[in-house]
Amino acid sequence: MDRIDLVITAELRPGFWNSSNERQHHAPISAALESALDGFASSTAHHESMDRKIHITVAPEADILRTLIGQLVIRYEGTVPTHQCRFCSKAMFEQRPILATVGTAAVSRVPDTDLLITPANRDHHDREMHFLRPLAKFPIVPERMVFVPPDDGTKLLLTGYANDKLERGLLALGADDWDALSDLFATYPEFRWHLIGAQDIDAVWSALAPGFRKTFADRITVSGMVELEDIFEGAFAFFALPGVGGSGTTAKLAIRSNVPVLVCRNGDRDMSNMFPTPPAHREFVVIVQLLAVWADDIDKRTAFLADQIDNINGRTDLEAKAREMQNVFRRTVDIFLARKREKEVADG
């Protein structure tokens, strides 16, 4: 690419940026950009040649976008569904091929777009493509791959979510799920369960099935926010609750600590979409049963973890990702040209 224009459009009402509030809103945006660019300039990824290619404009009016946008527009839609004005996006859509990218599988429909790339592992329609951004390579530390229990033989299970997600995730578990957990804990007394990130510790305790809570309370710990880098030391597994999303960053820290992550396959959950090949497990009961398999045969845990890290590291090849993006660009342009021909025919 010869030139990249980063355009901060801020979809607000027409004329807003020329009003008396202009300076008030420009200042924090400009300060954030300056901080980000300073950080980029000092990073190892920075190269002086990029300075000549990257151009930044803050909040233009829709009628001057045609002087700023290039042959193809990549629009970042964000991480949550929004209901905003779309003066700028409509103006761009009338003029250029539009490729939209989202930061989460929770955003699935984006207006004024020729093609959407999404992390969601699901059945895609013809104007949506699955794309996982590259990650830094996850190390394999041989001495940490094989689980070595502490002197008391504890096998620590971790589940972590922020806000009220722990409570909601536990309440979403069904009777079969709790029966499977009860069987696991009854058969393997070495298992302990630490639930971290609770917004309301009492509410999380109340969300546990009464029978399970009563029988195994001495093997369950509920905590608020903790130092995640420390909590994974010596952990047996990190597993997700199927009824809530989030916790992808925590799962990445688990993998980096060579702790396997168990999550149900769900195209709308970011943690499930963390893996280029989606998890095979579709039911929470299967995850619990797999923990029992690992308890009986620790080599199977090691093999699962090795495959999981290899799977994630398969997307660290930047040249392969660049080729993938070129295909995405070509498809976006093809859709735009077809759209343009259809409009010309309709206009006579």
Rank of each mutant, 00 (worst) to 15 (best):
H194S: 12
P139S: 09
T118N: 09
A322H: 13
I56E: 00
L173H: 07
R3W: 02
D296A: 11
G348T: 04
D5S: 15
E229N: 12
P97H: 01
C264Q: 06
T215S: 13
S49W: 00
N311K: 00
D268V: 06
N273S: 13
M325C: 07
F329A: 10
A27V: 09
S30M: 07
P210R: 10
G243V: 03
V288K: 06
F191W: 06
E190W: 01
M92W: 02
N313M: 09
A10V: 12
F185T: 03
Q199D: 13
P134D: 08
A120D: 10
V288P: 05
D2Y: 02
G15P: 07
A237C: 12
P139R: 08
L37G: 00
D200I: 00
D310K: 11
D296Q: 15
V285R: 12
D51E: 06
D299M: 15
K252F: 14
D176V: 02
D38G: 02
S20G: 08
N313P: 11
A45H: 10
W17T: 00
L181W: 07
F212H: 06
R213A: 15
I54P: 02
S223P: 00
V226H: 04
V345I: 12
R122T: 15
K300M: 11
V285Y: 07
K53E: 05
F232D: 05
P279C: 05
N163T: 11
A198W: 11
R75Q: 14
F238K: 13
V328W: 01
G174L: 01
Y188P: 01
T302H: 14
Y188V: 00
T221K: 12
A162W: 01
I335M: 09
S247N: 15
V288N: 01
A106T: 14
G153R: 05
S223Y: 06
A31Q: 14
I54A: 00
H83M: 03
D307W: 01
V263P: 09
E94M: 07
L228V: 14
V141I: 15
F236S: 03
G211Y: 03
I69M: 14
P139M: 04
E229F: 10
A254I: 14
P60C: 09
N18S: 09
E227I: 09
L170M: 13
T187G: 01
G243F: 04
W17F: 15
D152A: 09
Q95W: 11
A32K: 11
L241H: 10
D126Y: 01
E342V: 02
T159W: 09
P242D: 08
K165V: 01
E22V: 04
A32Q: 13
H25P: 00
T82I: 04
F212Q: 08
E94C: 06
P142V: 02
H194R: 15
D218W: 04
R301E: 12
H46I: 00
D179M: 07
E128F: 01
L156D: 03
K165A: 14
K343N: 08
E143K: 07
T79H: 11
R75V: 13
R96F: 12
W17P: 00
R122F: 07
G15Q: 05
T44G: 02
F191I: 04
A32R: 15
L158S: 08
Q199H: 06
E319S: 10
S182E: 10
S30E: 15
L37V: 10
W205M: 10
G78P: 13
F147K: 03
T57G: 04
D299F: 08
